[in-house]
Design a protein around this nucleic acid. Structure first.
Length: 413
RNA sequence: GGGCAGGUACCCAAGCGGCCAACGGGGCCAGACUGUAAAUCUGGUGGCGAAGCCUUCGGAGGUUCGAAUCCUCCCCUGCCCA
């Protein structure tokens, strides 16, 4: 069995470990069960969750058994760790809906068939808990003094921390105990903001299961891009993993627009390319780096959306930005025949294609010279576009600014 | 429950009766320069528009020719006290 911990370390996955020697020993001794928790706060995960997911995939490839734990119970509480304010409470219905989306995201990367990997939800054991029993059996192991001193709650102690949220850590620790006891899960992994919650879990296991109990925790770095933004967020919002919320083309573009300084790190984290290959790509200088970015984008898109979608996205990207490739793969807006028969002025067209939010915004765009029709800059606000004779294949290509494209075509009668 | 301080556009934050669609900064958008990078510079950043109009300053009422600005009630947040 290859030293997967070493691999993870070299590829930049590891931030903190409770006991590196012990972890290494556990992983080397044979197939091991480990878990990573995911909050069910949204109907899709976003790119920020990719680090843990990729780490899980590496471990699974090395023969270990991942448990993806969906926080259907803990999400009812809300994790205050490192947050400046509490989130609105989610209903059970929302959480149930979110769960399905997240499951689909995870299954793109991991086998969660119950054999090679498991998908569990902590609502299963948290929902039936009896308050008094829980306090007596689990609550007594927690020191309020220590929890209050924790760094993750520091901000919240100034701005307000409700008793509800204060319980989050206790519940997450309890999760680990349940998984340890009932599923033989010995390792918890997660983002570095989870460190406090994870260590609370290993402590609880030792206290409840006795000093011989060996449970470990490891965290992954919380990535920021070289320009300081949180990984997985763009100005327009999160980079979702669900194709419905964030198209494969947009996903591809997200990666290809990576900052130069991030390319090496991203290739190591978000692709399975061998390290030598990554180093070769990362060594490219100047404009050549675009080759490395194209590889990054293609591989990352392939992992999430599959080979076919990745190829389509690459075709579109090449066509729009390089002049080669098939432009019909570009994002497309289809007009009904009724719509197409009406003349539209330029602002209306840009709004209809979704490139601008309001007519005012479209007007600004056009006035400032950021609007293009089939590659030609257009500055005439009044210009009418005759859509009734659009070529049903090619349509007309709209561009807003440097990077946003939309092809408008007319639906067949 | 009592006392105090607050709630202004994506965020921070001015404004405290007309000159306010609301200073400034950040962010974001566009342009120039580039390599679909970074940095830099310029312009823009509620909506509809030709002028102009319409909707905004926690919510609802009120005073006034005129309110983000004054008054009343309510909601929310933080701090201190119970």
């Amino acid at each position: 069995m290859a030293d997967v911990l070493e691999t993870l370390k070299r590829r930049g996955f590891l931030q903190q470990m409770t006991d590196e020697a012990s972890l290494s020993e556990i992983l080397a001794s044979g197939p091991t069960t480990f878990y990573v928790g995911f909050d069910a706060t949204a109907p899709s995960l976003h790119a920020g969750s990719l680090v843990p997911i990729m780490a899980m995939a590496h471990l699974q490839r090395a023969g270990h058994r991942p448990i993806a734990l969906l926080g259907t119970g803990t999400t009812l509480i809300g994790d205050p760790s490192g947050k400046t304010e509490s989130r609105p409470l989610l209903s059970r219905e929302e959480i149930a809906r979110n769960k399905e989306g997240i499951r689909a995201n995870l299954e793109n990367f991991l086998a969660l068939d119950g054999e090679k990997g498991l998908l569990l939800e902590n609502g299963t054991w948290l929902e039936p808990l009896k308050y008094l029993d829980f306090l007596r059996e689990i609550g007594r192991h927690f020191s309020v003094n220590r929890m209050l001193a924790a760094e993750t709650y520091k901000i919240r102690l100034e701005t307000g921390l409700s008793f509800l949220e204060f319980n989050y850590q206790v519940l997450q620790a309890y999760d680990f105990l349940v998984l340890y006891r009932d599923y033989g899960c010995r390792i918890q992994a997660g983002g570095d903001d989870q460190w406090g919650n994870m260590v609370a879990g290993t402590d609880l296991i030792r206290r409840v299961m006795g000093p011989g109990a060996k449970a470990e925790a490891m965290t992954f770095p919380l990535l920021t891009t070289a320009s300081g933004a949180k990984m997985g967020k763009t100005e327009k919002g999160a980079v979702w993993l669900s194709a419905e919320r964030f198209s494969p083309y947009d996903y591809y573009q997200f990666w290809i627009n990576a900052d130069d300084r991030d390319v090496r790190r991203f290739l190591l984290l978000f692709t399975f390319l061998p390290e030598e290959e990554v180093e070769a790509l990362a060594a490219l200088q100047g404009a050549e780096i675009r080759k490395a970015k194209e590889t990054l984008a293609f591989e990352a898109t392939r992992l999430l959306h599959g080979d076919e979608e990745a190829q389509k996205a690459r075709e579109a990207s090449r066509a729009l930005f390089g002049g080669a490739g098939d432009a019909s793969r570009a994002p497309t807006c289809i007009l009904s025949p009724g719509e197409a028969d009406q003349e539209m002025d330029l602002p209306a067209l840009f709004v209809r294609a979704g490139l601008c939010k309001s007519r005012s915004e479209a007007r600004r765009l056009i006035l400032q010279g950021g609007a293009y029709l089939d590659g030609e800059r257009v500055k005439d606000l009044e210009k009418k576009v005759d859509l009734s004779r659009l070529d049903p294949e090619k349509g007309i290509l709209l561009r807003a600014g440097k990077k946003k494209y939309c092809r408008v075509i007319r639906a067949p009668e």
